[in-house]
């Protein structure tokens, strides 16, 4: 017969205490892997929180690569510029307005040499001029001076290819070349001055 241990005789166990223990190394490993994955994920889809980039596009350059090609004459753009800038005087159908602006339909000034046509909106036109055998003597302001080369090319192309007109398109390069040639001219053209470009 064994004796029961005398509990009261044992020393009281110490209070439990939290002590500093080393963090297991795997927690660091997993967190770094997760962080790396998050970084890659953000890099692929975050687009740096650009408000213009929506899914399914992943970044601004990805979005840019899907912009429709702008090659060739853009008549829709030309029409938009025409109706905002030119149509007030020359009318939306290009027929002009009596005592205000001559017609564009079948006009030798519109269908003729591009170099001559481009000069008119850039600097304006003043004084007597004959359009389709009709004499005019009015002033046109430099309506196209503020337009970009692309817009000006688009609107002139639209004028040359609408309302039954059929002439070659005008390119951005042609407009650029004319702007470079005329330099810092500030006076509007007269019909006589434009003779050499006929």
């Amino acid at each position: 017969m064994s004796r029961e241990p005398d509990i009261t005789a044992l020393p009281e166990p110490a209070e439990p205490r939290a002590e500093n223990a080393p963090v297991p190394i795997w927690i660091f490993t997993v967190s770094f892997v997760a962080l790396f994955w998050a970084m890659l994920y953000f890099d692929q889809r975050g687009a740096w929180f650009n408000p213009q980039v929506y899914a399914p596009y992943k970044s601004l350059s990805h979005l840019q690569s899907f912009q429709p090609p702008t090659g060739g004459p853009n008549l829709e753009r030309g029409r938009s510029v025409y109706e905002n800038v030119c149509a007030l005087c020359h009318n939306t159908d290009g027929a002009g307005k009596p005592n205000q602006a001559p017609t564009f339909i079948g006009s030798e000034w519109v269908l003729g040499n591009p170099a001559r046509l481009i000069r008119i909106p850039i600097h304006g036109l003043t004084g007597p001029i004959t359009v389709k055998g009709e004499s005019w003597n009015l002033n046109m302001a430099a309506m196209g001076a503020a337009l970009s080369d692309e817009d000006l090319a688009a609107v002139l192309t639209y004028m040359r290819q609408s309302w039954g007109n059929k002439a070659s398109p005008i390119t951005e390069e042609q407009v650029k070349a004319v702007r470079a040639e005329t330099g810092n001219r500030s006076q509007p053209w007269t019909a006589d001055e434009l003779k050499p470009f006929e």
């Binding site: 408000p51 429709p68 753009r77």
Partner: peptide, 20 residues
């Protein structure tokens, strides 16, 4: 704050290929 900074500044934009 961030969404209202992003979306609150939206304005009308030009449609592609025109100034509409």
């Amino acid at each position: 704050v961030r969404p209202s900074m992003q979306l609150g500044r939206f304005q009308q934009t030009n449609m592609l290929g025109g100034s509409t």
